[in-house]
Amino acid sequence: MSNLLEVEGLDVRFAGLHALRDVSLTLAPGQIMAVIGPNGAGKTTLFNAISGYVRPSSGQVRLRGHDVARLSPHAIAEHGIRRTFQNGGLFPALTVLENVLTGLHAQTEGSLVDVILGRSRALASERAMIAKARDLLSLMQMEHMADTRAGDLSGGQQRIVEIVRTVASDPPVLLLDEPAVGLSPLARDQMMDIINRMAGEKGVGILLIEHAVELVMAGADRIMVMAAGQHIAEGTPAEIREDRAVLEAYLGHA
């Protein structure tokens, strides 16, 4: 099966700082790959480079064989690489439901003018999007908060809503930056269930950064380890547990 995402020889420099050094990875349809490493390892810089928020100094980011490395974040998202952020990206003045609907806007038939004027095709599409958004919120046990302002939610609740909004558009590649931050154990399990269903049932390739090692070991197909901006190890969870380079990176000794 051909890869969805191919990152090859990615380098990022910031005014003399070599933030990424020749990083490569592949992501297949339906695969969950975790990226782990100590603070400052370059994990978020890698996500920023893949999603267009940082321009690589060299290297390629190919989605289904097409290099998207130097496109804008919006263009990369339109191609099908969607992501979440460590600090969230919700619209605090909008309700939970309205925030999820912003992730579905591109799938809505008709323009905003069509909706305002009550044209049937646009209204039917809008109803379908609202139903889908409510179904996703229900799956994450958040439907009862659909009309709550996002700014009034706890940090963990906001994280769940952001993930729901991101997966709502059914992207082929999903980048999740620390999705478990601020979540209760139950919410973590619910979130991982969503991730596994996206990968297993819809063939979404999922790349995630996560510091909750037990979550990574239980949920990832493969794990890539970074340190000092470099790819130092990759393998199954069982292989990573025994890797001497990983022990060195995390503990200072093998």
Score class of each variant (00 low, 15 high):
residue 158 Q to F: 03
residue 121 R to Y: 10
residue 138 S to Y: 05
residue 196 N to Y: 08
residue 193 D to T: 13
residue 118 G to K: 03
residue 132 K to I: 01
residue 220 A to C: 08
residue 164 V to A: 03
residue 217 M to A: 13
residue 165 R to I: 00
residue 220 A to K: 09
residue 157 Q to Y: 07
residue 163 I to S: 00
residue 157 Q to V: 07
residue 191 M to C: 11
residue 116 I to A: 11
residue 220 A to I: 08
residue 209 I to E: 06
residue 217 M to L: 15
residue 157 Q to D: 08
residue 128 A to Y: 02
residue 213 V to E: 11
residue 147 D to N: 15
residue 145 M to Q: 14
residue 130 I to D: 02
residue 159 R to L: 01
residue 202 K to C: 08
residue 143 E to G: 08
residue 223 I to L: 12
residue 161 V to D: 06
residue 155 G to F: 06
residue 166 T to A: 14
residue 193 D to P: 01
residue 189 D to K: 15
residue 210 E to P: 04
residue 111 S to K: 06
residue 119 R to D: 05
residue 148 T to Q: 15
residue 165 R to P: 00
residue 147 D to Q: 15
residue 136 L to P: 01
residue 140 M to L: 15
residue 157 Q to K: 09
residue 217 M to C: 13
residue 164 V to C: 00
residue 213 V to P: 05
residue 211 H to C: 06
residue 123 L to S: 07
residue 149 R to W: 02
residue 206 I to W: 05
residue 144 H to V: 05
residue 130 I to A: 02
residue 221 D to E: 07
residue 158 Q to I: 04
residue 126 E to V: 01
residue 222 R to V: 08
residue 127 R to Q: 11
residue 172 P to H: 04
residue 188 R to I: 13
residue 203 G to Q: 13
residue 117 L to T: 03
residue 223 I to H: 12
residue 149 R to E: 12
residue 111 S to I: 05
residue 197 R to E: 13
residue 183 L to C: 06
residue 221 D to V: 05
residue 191 M to P: 00
residue 109 E to I: 09
residue 123 L to F: 03
residue 113 V to M: 08
residue 133 A to G: 01
residue 190 Q to Y: 04
residue 173 V to N: 09
residue 197 R to H: 13
residue 221 D to M: 07
residue 193 D to Q: 14
residue 197 R to F: 02
residue 173 V to L: 09
residue 112 L to S: 09
residue 112 L to F: 04
residue 186 L to M: 15
residue 155 G to I: 04
residue 224 M to K: 14
residue 146 A to E: 13
residue 116 I to P: 02
residue 160 I to D: 08
residue 172 P to G: 06
residue 198 M to T: 03
residue 150 A to I: 03
residue 112 L to R: 13
residue 166 T to R: 00
residue 140 M to H: 01
residue 158 Q to S: 10
residue 170 D to C: 09
residue 221 D to A: 06
residue 123 L to I: 10
residue 204 V to P: 02
residue 130 I to N: 01
residue 190 Q to H: 09
residue 118 G to L: 03
residue 201 E to M: 12
residue 143 E to C: 08
residue 111 S to F: 05
residue 212 A to T: 04
residue 216 V to G: 10
residue 150 A to Y: 05
residue 202 K to F: 07
residue 215 L to M: 10
residue 196 N to P: 06
residue 166 T to P: 00
residue 148 T to L: 13
residue 115 V to M: 02
residue 148 T to V: 15
residue 207 L to I: 08
residue 134 R to T: 11
residue 164 V to Q: 04
residue 128 A to F: 02
residue 217 M to I: 13
residue 141 Q to W: 09
residue 172 P to W: 10
residue 106 A to N: 10
residue 117 L to M: 12
residue 141 Q to D: 14
residue 205 G to L: 07
residue 140 M to D: 01
residue 119 R to T: 01
residue 172 P to V: 09
residue 129 M to H: 05
residue 223 I to N: 12
residue 130 I to Q: 08
residue 138 S to T: 04
residue 165 R to V: 00
residue 215 L to I: 13
residue 114 D to W: 03
residue 204 V to A: 14
residue 200 G to H: 13
residue 147 D to I: 11
residue 138 S to E: 12
residue 131 A to S: 10
